[in-house]
Design a protein around this nucleic acid. Structure first.
Lengths: 246, 246
DNA sequence: TGTATCCGATACATCAACGTATTCGATAGA
DNA sequence: TCTATCGAATACGTTGATGTATCGGATACA
């Protein structure tokens, strides 16, 4: 499978761009519902409101469509994560109270939650992972995105932990992976059970407990007890630590 | 998809049983290589040394073949795990020295390692998980096996930990899941990198570190230090860290 | 308003996998 | 040894997805 992208989505007439986008939207749904292999070009086109003619004048194969789709979704995911960081920064920097564990759990779940519907994304991502186990080229694309995502994630998780006065007791990469693995695990269980992960309050608790187990309080520079920060503005006034973890 | 098994593999003439087995063996390979959907009944038969006629007189659909395959593999997996328990019991009960961390890591990796080739099994299992996210019936079969496996695993891991004088700091089910998730994660990375997980020494170390983080020493009943057991009879007497967790 | 170009629709030829109906051969039992 | 039955092979019809070659209409520009 070729996962090399078309040079850019630029240089396309608006009409063409719109057609491509609608095909990608449809592919996102159809691929998630039926799996890439079981999906047919015809059904994607139908869903998008086109015939196969439109498809073949925009893509050459179903695999190329899938590659374009993954690139788009990965970009969206990274953009969404960056947006979270921006939105979170003032909140993180403003608060000074003790850490609120429920808030930390929500935060962690939020970090791993994608910009789109969880279930749909999980299905597509799972299939992408599967392909990456068979095809070295896909493995490369997978690893590239995984690394980009992990880097971004590490930055924001690190900042949150820092403000919470905690530090990972395992290498950062390993710890973040474990959190991600737990998220995936819980998400898949929820999907199998036909529920949404965010309806399950125990998911947040489990996430918090893992965060606590994977971290330890950072000793304050003056030798006193570690400072604690609240992620919820309504807390007490114990000050925030200033140094960065990770 | 129907995952209800044929009542039993009993009541089959030896000839029939043999062709079924050969078809299942072939399916195991072909499905892993190409994915279930991309695989064709013809190719499975070819690989097994039969024509499609043999297939259709033993199975009705490719899905039924897959269901039978998963049942067989799950049985093998559970049997292999039980065998490990039996093999390990005398070793676990005989030793009294301090726990050897490297041995613990090997043990944990061994627990999660299936009876067959890691890579092949990982591919099949991954696809089975994917199906379980779409089809409630598959989800049921998946959950059933997962529960059986987790129960067996918990028993043996619990015993090993007990002899090591340690106890999970999270609910057992969650802790075992985390270990499994980490194993899966590392295995998939190894496959993508084209290596075997067991060539990677850091995998063992990472596993040990997670075990240590997820557990704490159990205080001995008499108030003395926790009982320490060595899983390697020939190991040294270097004591174990007692303060691994948060 | 006329015309050229772009892009999606249509129609068709091809192919691969499927499932069934039937045949053929081997094996077991009389 | 003969025969009946079981199980795999063979052959054929059907279906559905694919890709291409061509057509038609909308849009932009003179």
């Amino acid at each position: 499978m070729t996962l090399i992208s078309t040079p850019a989505d630029v240089l396309l007439t608006p009409r063409r761009q719109r057609t491509r986008d609608r095909l990608l939207d449809a592919a996102y749904e159809v691929f998630a519902e039926q799996g890439v292999h079981a999906s047919t070009v015809e059904e994607v086109c139908e869903r998008a409101g086109f015939t196969r003619g439109a498809f073949y004048s925009n893509f050459t194969t179903k695999e190329e469509l899938f590659a374009a789709l993954m690139e788009r979704q990965h970009s969206l995911q990274l953009a969404a994560l960056a947006l979270k960081v921006d939105r979170l920064r003032p909140r993180l920097e403003a608060v000074t109270g003790p850490i609120d564990e429920a808030g930390l759990g929500d935060l962690m779940l939020d970090f791993f939650t994608g910009p789109l519907d969880d279930r749909t994304w999980c299905l597509i991502d799972h299939e992408f992972r599967l392909m990456s186990l068979r095809d070295p080229e896909v493995a490369g694309a997978f690893a590239a995105h995984e690394e980009a995502f992990e880097t971004s994630l590490l930055a924001i998780v690190g900042r949150a932990l820092d403000l919470a006065g905690r530090r990972f007791v395992l290498p950062d990469g390993v710890a973040v992976r474990l959190l991600g693995d737990l998220y995936q695990d819980m998400l898949q269980r929820a999907i199998r059970a036909g529920r949404s992960l965010h309806e399950a309050p125990e998911a947040r608790d489990t996430m918090v407990r893992l965060v606590l187990v994977l971290t330890r309080p950072v000793a304050a520079p003056d030798g006193g007890p570690a400072r604690r920060t609240d992620l919820h503005p309504a807390a007490t006034d114990v000050p925030v630590r200033a140094d960065a973890t990770c």
